[in-house]
């Protein structure tokens, strides 16, 4: 589903990623862990083609990401659901409109939008907040809206950069349950996180990055440093 082939990304003075090769299969649930500045967000941004690689090849689904033109980026992004730590909802739109927007972008017919948006809102458990604005919601509720928006078009991949970073532990677990559920429906999930307890308990594949290199890639627990793993 996602394949990095000797990918390198250098910033002016810093290394983002250095010769990284990795493959994530369809239906996988992968945690991306590592210390601050390791290159996790760089990894995510490269997948989204928010930044361009200096070397190597990136494949997502049927797309060769390196060779996407500015024109085709929107088409490509529609195949990927994205969730951020800071939710990134449209403040001037209601919960319903935020989710509907993702469908309008795809020129989906109104009938379908009216049918599917409530279904997704009920899936993520915020049906009762449909006509509220993001600012009127709790952090956990806002993240649910962001997830609803990310999955409403049934993307093959869901990318999440620290989706629980701004949430209290209980709410974080609710969000993790939701993501697990979405993964069970067949969506590939790549999630960046610093939350050790979550990674340890979920028992999913863990890719640890440090200084731009993948230092560990196995199923199980957190710990991006070999010495830290007992």
């Amino acid at each position: 589903m996602i394949r990095f082939d000797h990918v390198t990304k250098k910033y002016k003075t810093n290394i983002g990623l250095d010769d990284v090769s990795v493959s994530i299969e369809k239906g996988d649930f992968v945690f991306l862990v590592g210390p601050s500045g390791a290159g996790k967000s760089t990894f995510i941004k490269l997948i989204l083609k928010e930044i361009n690689a200096d070397g190597g090849d990136i494949y997502v689904g049927d797309f060769h990401v390196n060779s996407l033109s500015n024109r085709t980026i929107p088409k490509f992004r529609r195949k990927i659901g994205i969730v951020f730590q800071d939710f990134r909802l449209l403040h001037k739109k209601t919960v319903y409109e935020n989710v509907a927007f993702a469908m309008e972008v795809l020129h989906k017919p109104h009938r379908l939008i009216r049918k599917q948006v409530p279904q997704i809102l009920s899936l993520v458990g915020i049906s009762d907040k449909a006509h509220k604005y993001p600012d009127e919601l709790s952090a956990g509720e806002q993240q649910r809206v962001a997830i609803a928006r990310a999955i409403v078009n049934n993307p093959a991949v869901l990318i999440a950069d620290e989706p629980t970073g701004n949430l209290d532990p209980d709410t974080a677990w609710e969000i993790m349950d939701l993501l697990d559920q979405i993964n069970l429906r067949g969506t590939t999930i790549v999630m960046v996180t610093h939350a050790k307890d979550i990674v340890d308990r979920m028992k999913k594949r863990v890719i640890a990055i440090e200084k731009g290199h993948i230092v560990r890639d196995e199923k199980g627990a957190y710990g991006y440093n070999l010495e830290e793993v007992e």
């Binding site: 929107p74 992004r77 994205i82 990134r88 449209l90 403040h91 927007f101 993702a102 972008v105 795809l106």
Partner: peptide, 10 residues
């Protein structure tokens, strides 16, 4: 807002 719209693929 515009950045977010671009993320969604607009």
């Amino acid at each position: 807002e515009i950045r977010i719209m671009r993320y969604v693929g607009a």
